[in-house]
Design a protein around this nucleic acid. Structure first.
Length: 804
RNA sequence: GCCGAGGUGGCGGAACUGGUAGACGCGUCGGACUCAAAAUCCGGUGAGCCUUAAAACUCGUGAGGGUUCGAUUCCCUCCCUCGGCACCA
């Protein structure tokens, strides 16, 4: 009799042994050739503990890590904590507990759960972004940016969350609301620190060609950067001593331009409003727009409004005078803040033309050949087409015309080719406590100076009142300013804002390489050896935030000469969302939250790992099913019970063939991240062994090996029970024999007129003549085929199709 | 509105470069074990038609069309779901 499968006992036992033997430490003999760096996204240690979504990422990464190790790679697998951030601080405000305390509790809990899952992490390299040893380097990165002219202070309209009482980056505003609290985000003028990510827009856009990321992720990031190639055209404005400049990507339609519209807050308007003959109306309009709240703008939707300035611009292409308007559909921050209106070929321009009564001219004919007047929004022609009413452009298609007129405008000195971006500089100041202090000090005149590197880290003080006032809580800390005057000068003060936590997570993958280094964020040797990350799993929600920022940081490091590569993540994949059993997002509100600890309690860590992989493809959104979880447990039970059939003397060619096929299939599936089918095949194999009388020992041992990345605990137990004294996790991935997995007999479908009518057994590689003869001899085929078929389609080893 | 991903049994999902659709698991039905239940084990299970049963046949991968000996897979049109962006000129 074999003993019962007691997952609790087995898992506790091996956890301790593995930890004692430190079997998952990063190998010393790693080189840049044989290394493999696996990175699960840095988790935020929330108070509610590990989520099944985290467990999915760690399972996938760990299976991959274990597989790579067995294939001879020197694996670095690590974990750390994105420990600063708003939830801990909000909790502190409510319950008056210091964030450091709650955060460290949460980390302890996460660490315990991840260890219990059997994730083969090198715990000596654990990092937390809230430790001074870590944020010293976050501050160092800020100073590096500052030294390179990439960090600057500017007063500007910022996104302000009234709930969190802090500024947000564009990336943290979702549908006009704060992504954390859900409050409607307001616009506010504030002086803030910015990082000049826009300087890297082109490289961030182009270098996406170098990485192996999901196509849609690359596309989304490019859309976010929003590069558009166009031209700035300057038009003379009679009666004004300056020209008006507009940005357009469609200069080909310029013969159809009938007006210009400026944003109410564009530089041109602000500078010249006094000179407008209609200045009263314009001022009134500017004021009314300014008073509009975000909400009112939303409600008004796309309704176009505007007023005439009294000025005209001269379109030098056709010497037409075109009126200049002010309209709030034009955004000051885009292009030059002024647009040229071509109502026949841009819906927004059409709507504006209708609203103010401007002329509409057709200059492009689409594929439908329609040359009629454009009288309705539906007729606005924005697609490909051929130029008309456009002088020397007539007859060209719009792309040729665009090139030609750009050259012409540039040559005449009327225009300048320009690239425009949607990407804005990254606002990094936060009026919150629980973050890394910005390492700057202000002198008597309020001029900022960087804190010298030797004075880092600027420590977060303890004497802080968390009640949000809109001022950073650090403003009220005495400790924080203590000694500043002595160190830097009379009435010098520290910057009291903290850094956006996305700065902490923009470089964490470097710290793992050399986590205890106090001379550098990581040594040159470590960086050279381990980077770039070979495999990175993270959520799709970070495409335009974290992933973009990390790439930016890496490029800055590259330019500063610290590293020799300029993309951090060679391969990146996303995990999908795991829904509750009711197909809704897991939430306390719905009471449908599945807790990984409960799963491990009832069925074990191995079941948790395998079930999460078996649910479906990694990147899919998929619902949890507790019954399915049980099915996986049953599978492990079957494997467990097989141990009694293992026999050293038993021989079986069939088992030999099947295990060889399985080794091939599981290996390939892991490489493709098709963990679900790898599990399915292992189940099939188990079902096959269940009906066997005995199991050949070497087949059994190879099976345990390929199952070990998925079920590290049970396979270790069975491995050592079977007489092995060292860990199964130090074993190599078994090789398969190509000759053995070639099918000898094939069941071939016989089709008549494309419909399957029968199946015959043939030997592999059998020729057409022989197969056809067999097929025609079948009783069921005879029913359909009288005499010779008209035509026969034969694909070797696949199909025979008889056409009658 | 635009962009992206995707629609396969009762459910989660399989299916190589076009070649036996529905692997594997769940559920369900029937059986074994049991005084009984749970657990476990064995067998059936896309729909329809017919039926005591079996065989056979027909239909089936969101809808409609096309290419092909053959389409879940390729092409066109449309519908729906999810995700992203949202006056970006």
């Amino acid at each position: 009799m074999i003993e019962k499968y007691d997952h609790i006992k087995i898992e506790e036992k091996w956890s301790q042994i593995w930890e004692k033997d430190n079997i998952y430490c990063t190998p010393d003999d790693a080189t840049s050739e044989n290394k493999y760096y696996i990175l699960p996204q840095l988790p935020y240690p929330s108070g509610s503990g590990l989520h099944v979504g985290h467990a999915e990422v760690y399972s996938a990464c760990d299976i991959f890590a274990r597989y790579k190790r067995m294939k001879g790679k020197k694996v670095l697998q690590v974990i750390g904590w994105d420990a600063f951030g708003l939830p801990a601080e909000n909790y502190a405000i409510k319950n008056n507990v210091y964030p450091k305390v709650t955060t460290n509790d949460a980390i302890d809990n996460f660490r315990y759960q991840i260890k219990r899952m059997g994730v083969s992490v090198d715990w000596d390299r654990e990092v937390g972004s809230h430790s001074p040893e870590y944020y010293k380097w976050t501050q160092w990165f800020f100073l590096l940016m500052y030294k390179r002219g990439l960090a600057y202070r500017k007063e500007q309209q910022v996104n302000w969350c009234p709930g969190c009482k802090t500024v947000l980056a564009n990336e943290q505003v979702v549908d006009g609301c704060c992504e954390r609290s859900g409050d409607k985000v307001e616009q506010k003028m504030m002086e803030q620190w910015y990082l000049k990510i826009t300087e890297y827009a082109d490289r961030l856009y182009d270098d996406l060609d170098k990485v192996d990321w999901p196509e849609e992720t690359i596309k989304r990031q490019r859309d976010w950067i929003g590069r558009s190639e166009g031209i700035n055209i300057s038009y003379e404005v009679p009666g004004l001593d300056e020209k008006i400049k507009v940005f357009t990507t469609r200069p080909d339609t310029n013969f159809g331009a009938t007006f210009i519209v400026c944003a109410p807050d564009s530089d041109f308007i602000i500078r010249n409003v006094e000179k407008f003959s209609e200045k009263e109306k314009v001022r009134k309009y500017m004021k009314s727009v300014k008073n509009k709240t975000e909400l009112e703008r939303m409600q008004e939707g796309k309704k176009k409004t505007g007023v005439f300035t009294g000025l005209y611009a001269l379109n030098m292409l056709n010497n037409k005078r075109i009126p200049i308007y002010v309209g709030d559909f034009v955004l000051a921050s885009v292009g030059t803040g002024n647009v040229v209106g071509v109502p026949g070929h841009d819906k927004r321009d059409f709507e504006f033309a209708k609203a103010v009564g401007a002329e509409i001219v057709r200059v492009v004919v689409g594929s439908d050949g329609d040359k009629s007047e454009i009288t309705d929004v539906k007729k606005v022609q924005e697609a490909e087409g051929t130029m008309i009413n456009s002088d020397f452009l007539d007859g060209l298609n719009i792309n040729e015309a665009t090139g030609k007129i750009m050259d012409y405008l540039v040559e005449k000195g009327w225009g300048e080719r320009i690239t425009n971006y949607k990407l804005r500089d990254w606002s990094v100041s936060r009026q919150r406590f629980w973050g890394a202090p910005i390492p700057m000090v202000f002198d008597q005149e309020g001029k900022p100076h960087p804190v010298p590197e030797k004075d880092l880290p600027v420590l977060l003080p303890d004497d802080v009142d968390f009640i949000p006032t809109g001022q950073s809580p650090l403003t009220y800390s005495k400790d924080f300013q203590t000694g500043v005057e002595k160190k830097y000068g009379e009435s010098w003060r520290r910057e009291v804002d903290t850094l956006d936590t996305f700065l902490c997570s923009s470089w964490y993958y470097y710290r793992y390489l050399d986590p205890r280094n106090d001379q550098a964020f990581a040594s040159k040797e470590a960086l050279e050896k381990w980077m770039p990350v070979d495999f990175y799993i993270g959520g799709p929600e970070h495409v335009t935030g974290h992933l973009l920022y990390s790439r930016f940081f890496t490029k800055v490091l590259y330019d500063a000469g610290y590293i020799t590569f300029d993309e951090p993540f060679a391969v990146h994949r996303h995990q999908g969302t795991i829904l509750g059993e009711d197909n809704r997002k897991m939430s306390k509100r719905w009471g449908n939250v599945i807790n990984p600890t409960d799963v491990m309690d009832r069925n074990g860590a191995d079941t948790l790992r395998i079930y999460e992989m078996f649910m479906g493809p990694l990147s899919d959104t998929k619902p949890w099913n507790t019954k399915g979880e049980k099915g996986v447990h049953k599978f492990l039970l079957k494997v467990w019970n097989l141990q009694k059939k293992v026999s050293e003397s038993f021989e079986s060619r069939e088992q030999e063939i099947e295990i060889n096929k399985l080794i091939k299939k599981v290996g390939e599936d892991i490489e493709d991240l098709s963990f679900n089918t790898a599990v399915a095949k292992s189940m099939e194999f188990t079902n096959f062994l269940v009906v066997e009388k005995e199991v050949k020992k070497s087949v059994w041992e190879r099976f345990l090996k390929i199952l070990s990345p998925f079920a590290p605990y049970m396979t270790e137990e069975l491995w050592q029970k079977g007489g092995n004294s060292d860990s199964i996790h130090k074993e190599q991935w078994p090789e398969y024999d190509k000759k053995l997995i070639i099918e000898e007999k094939i069941i071939m479908a016989v089709q008549v007129n494309g419909k399957v009518r029968d199946k015959i057994e043939i030997s592999a590689g059998e020729g057409q003549a022989s197969v056809q003869k067999k097929a025609l001899a079948q009783e069921r085929i005879k029913k359909y085929v009288e005499g010779e078929p008209k035509k026969v389609i034969f694909v070797k080893d696949k199909i025979i199709n008889l056409i009658v």
